[in-house]
Amino acid sequence: MTRVWILPVLMLLCGALLAAGRAAGGSPVGAVALLLLFVLLAAATSPLAFPRSTGAAEARRRAEADGRPVVYWRPGCAYCLRLRFRLGARGRRAHWVDIWRDPAGAAAVREATGGDETVPTVVVAGRAHVNPDPAWVREQLSR
Protein backbone atom coordinates (compact mmCIF):
# COMPACT_ATOMS: atom_id res chain seq x y z
CA MET A 1 0.00 0.00 0.00
CA THR A 2 2.73 2.47 0.90
CA ARG A 3 4.92 1.75 -2.13
CA VAL A 4 2.44 3.53 -4.39
CA TRP A 5 3.44 6.76 -2.64
CA ILE A 6 7.23 6.28 -2.86
CA LEU A 7 7.67 8.03 -6.23
CA PRO A 8 5.42 11.02 -5.43
CA VAL A 9 7.09 11.52 -2.05
CA LEU A 10 10.55 11.31 -3.65
CA MET A 11 9.45 13.90 -6.20
CA LEU A 12 8.32 16.22 -3.41
CA LEU A 13 11.55 15.74 -1.44
CA CYS A 14 13.75 16.34 -4.48
CA GLY A 15 11.72 19.39 -5.42
CA ALA A 16 11.97 20.77 -1.89
CA LEU A 17 15.73 20.25 -1.82
CA LEU A 18 16.26 21.85 -5.22
CA ALA A 19 13.95 24.73 -4.38
CA ALA A 20 15.78 25.30 -1.08
CA GLY A 21 19.05 25.44 -3.00
CA ARG A 22 17.61 27.98 -5.42
CA ALA A 23 16.18 30.06 -2.58
CA ALA A 24 19.52 30.01 -0.75
CA GLY A 25 21.21 31.07 -3.99
CA GLY A 26 19.07 34.21 -4.10
CA SER A 27 16.40 33.14 -6.60
CA PRO A 28 13.09 32.90 -4.72
CA VAL A 29 10.99 33.08 -7.90
CA GLY A 30 12.97 30.23 -9.43
CA ALA A 31 12.60 28.27 -6.19
CA VAL A 32 8.82 28.64 -6.20
CA ALA A 33 8.60 27.68 -9.88
CA LEU A 34 10.78 24.62 -9.33
CA LEU A 35 8.79 23.55 -6.28
CA LEU A 36 5.53 23.99 -8.19
CA LEU A 37 6.86 21.83 -11.02
CA PHE A 38 7.79 19.03 -8.64
CA VAL A 39 4.45 19.25 -6.83
CA LEU A 40 2.68 18.83 -10.19
CA LEU A 41 4.91 15.87 -11.09
CA ALA A 42 4.21 14.29 -7.71
CA ALA A 43 0.46 14.72 -8.19
CA ALA A 44 0.62 13.26 -11.70
CA THR A 45 2.51 10.16 -10.56
CA SER A 46 0.37 9.58 -7.49
CA PRO A 47 -2.70 7.36 -7.29
CA LEU A 48 -4.76 10.56 -7.02
CA ALA A 49 -4.44 11.11 -10.79
CA PHE A 50 -6.42 7.94 -11.45
CA PRO A 51 -10.04 7.05 -10.72
CA ARG A 52 -10.66 4.94 -7.65
CA SER A 53 -9.47 1.41 -8.22
CA THR A 54 -11.62 -1.63 -7.72
CA GLY A 55 -10.65 -5.24 -7.33
CA ALA A 56 -10.14 -7.39 -10.42
CA ALA A 57 -13.16 -9.59 -9.72
CA GLU A 58 -15.43 -6.58 -9.16
CA ALA A 59 -14.10 -4.84 -12.29
CA ARG A 60 -14.71 -7.96 -14.41
CA ARG A 61 -18.23 -8.28 -13.02
CA ARG A 62 -19.00 -4.63 -13.77
CA ALA A 63 -17.45 -4.87 -17.25
CA GLU A 64 -19.63 -7.86 -18.08
CA ALA A 65 -22.69 -5.94 -16.95
CA ASP A 66 -22.01 -2.62 -18.72
CA GLY A 67 -19.50 -3.53 -21.47
CA ARG A 68 -16.92 -0.97 -20.40
CA PRO A 69 -13.18 -1.73 -20.53
CA VAL A 70 -11.12 -2.82 -17.53
CA VAL A 71 -7.79 -1.01 -17.28
CA TYR A 72 -5.03 -2.65 -15.24
CA TRP A 73 -2.44 -0.10 -14.11
CA ARG A 74 0.12 0.68 -11.43
CA PRO A 75 1.25 3.98 -9.88
CA GLY A 76 4.41 5.47 -11.32
CA CYS A 77 3.95 3.84 -14.73
CA ALA A 78 4.58 6.45 -17.43
CA TYR A 79 2.50 4.55 -19.99
CA CYS A 80 -0.44 4.32 -17.57
CA LEU A 81 -0.14 8.04 -16.91
CA ARG A 82 -0.07 8.74 -20.65
CA LEU A 83 -3.20 6.66 -21.15
CA ARG A 84 -5.00 8.30 -18.23
CA PHE A 85 -4.27 11.84 -19.41
CA ARG A 86 -5.12 11.13 -23.02
CA LEU A 87 -8.45 9.59 -22.06
CA GLY A 88 -9.38 12.76 -20.20
CA ALA A 89 -12.76 12.78 -18.48
CA ARG A 90 -13.84 9.67 -20.41
CA GLY A 91 -11.26 7.68 -18.48
CA ARG A 92 -13.53 7.69 -15.45
CA ARG A 93 -15.97 5.46 -17.35
CA ALA A 94 -13.48 2.58 -17.41
CA HIS A 95 -12.99 0.19 -14.52
CA TRP A 96 -9.46 0.74 -13.13
CA VAL A 97 -7.55 -1.97 -11.25
CA ASP A 98 -4.31 -1.09 -9.47
CA ILE A 99 -2.20 -4.26 -9.77
CA TRP A 100 -0.08 -3.26 -6.76
CA ARG A 101 -3.16 -3.23 -4.54
CA ASP A 102 -4.87 -6.28 -5.99
CA PRO A 103 -2.93 -9.56 -6.37
CA ALA A 104 -5.76 -10.97 -8.52
CA GLY A 105 -5.34 -8.02 -10.88
CA ALA A 106 -1.59 -8.65 -11.10
CA ALA A 107 -2.30 -12.32 -11.83
CA ALA A 108 -4.77 -11.37 -14.58
CA VAL A 109 -2.14 -9.15 -16.20
CA ARG A 110 0.52 -11.87 -15.97
CA GLU A 111 -1.90 -14.32 -17.58
CA ALA A 112 -2.71 -11.89 -20.40
CA THR A 113 0.90 -10.92 -21.09
CA GLY A 114 2.61 -14.27 -20.80
CA GLY A 115 4.06 -13.82 -17.33
CA ASP A 116 4.96 -10.12 -17.32
CA GLU A 117 3.19 -7.38 -15.40
CA THR A 118 3.10 -5.05 -18.38
CA VAL A 119 0.67 -2.22 -17.87
CA PRO A 120 -1.51 -0.63 -18.97
CA THR A 121 -3.37 -3.73 -20.00
CA VAL A 122 -6.89 -3.03 -21.17
CA VAL A 123 -9.48 -5.81 -21.33
CA VAL A 124 -12.42 -5.27 -23.65
CA ALA A 125 -15.04 -8.00 -24.10
CA GLY A 126 -12.74 -10.55 -22.49
CA ARG A 127 -9.79 -9.78 -24.80
CA ALA A 128 -6.61 -8.22 -23.39
CA HIS A 129 -4.73 -5.42 -25.15
CA VAL A 130 -1.30 -4.51 -23.79
CA ASN A 131 -0.39 -0.81 -23.91
CA PRO A 132 -3.08 0.04 -26.47
CA ASP A 133 -3.35 3.29 -28.35
CA PRO A 134 -5.27 5.82 -26.20
CA ALA A 135 -7.43 6.79 -29.20
CA TRP A 136 -8.57 3.19 -29.50
CA VAL A 137 -9.42 3.04 -25.78
CA ARG A 138 -11.34 6.33 -26.09
CA GLU A 139 -13.31 4.75 -28.94
CA GLN A 140 -14.11 1.71 -26.75
CA LEU A 141 -15.33 4.01 -23.97
CA SER A 142 -17.61 5.88 -26.38
CA ARG A 143 -19.54 2.73 -27.26
Rank of each mutant, 00 (worst) to 15 (best):
Y72T: 03
G67L: 12
R92A: 15
D66C: 03
V39N: 12
L41M: 14
R60Y: 12
G21D: 07
P28R: 11
P47Y: 00
R61D: 07
P75Y: 01
W96S: 04
R101W: 05
G55Q: 02
L40N: 04
R22C: 13
R101V: 05
C77S: 05
L35M: 14
R22T: 09
A49G: 06
D98C: 12
A44M: 13
V97K: 02
S27Q: 15
R62G: 08
P51I: 04
A23R: 12
V97D: 00
A78Q: 13
G55A: 07
A31Y: 00
A20L: 14
R84P: 03
R93P: 02
L40P: 07
I99D: 06
A56R: 08
R84V: 02
P47K: 07
T45F: 09
W100Q: 14
G21C: 01
S53L: 00
R61F: 11
R74H: 13
S46N: 07
G55P: 01
G25P: 01
R92P: 04
C80Y: 00
V70N: 02
P75E: 07
C77Q: 01
V29R: 15
A42Q: 02
L87G: 13
P51K: 03
L37C: 10
R68Y: 05
A49M: 15
E58W: 03
W100T: 14
R92H: 12
R61M: 07
L87V: 07
Y79L: 14
G26E: 09
A59S: 02
H95W: 13
F50Q: 07
R74Q: 12
A43Y: 14
G67N: 15
T54Y: 08
V70A: 11
G67H: 13
W100P: 00
R84I: 04
R68I: 04
G30Y: 11
E58S: 11
F50H: 10
G30H: 00
P75T: 00
L36E: 05
G25N: 06
W100K: 01
A56W: 02
R92W: 14
C77I: 00
A89M: 10
S27Y: 06
A44R: 10
A42C: 14
A42D: 06
S27H: 03
R86W: 08
G26L: 09
L81Y: 02
R61L: 05
H95S: 05
L40Q: 13
A57E: 12
V39W: 15
R61Y: 00
L81A: 02
A31K: 10
V32G: 09
G88D: 11
V32H: 09
F50W: 08
A20K: 10
V29A: 15
L40Y: 11
D98V: 00
S46L: 06
V97I: 01
P47I: 12
A23H: 13
F38H: 08
R68T: 11
V29W: 09
Y79E: 12
V29I: 10
A43T: 06
A89E: 14
V97W: 06
L36T: 14
E64R: 13
R101Y: 01
V32T: 07
L34M: 05
L48I: 13
W100L: 09
F85T: 11
R60G: 06
S53P: 06
P47T: 13
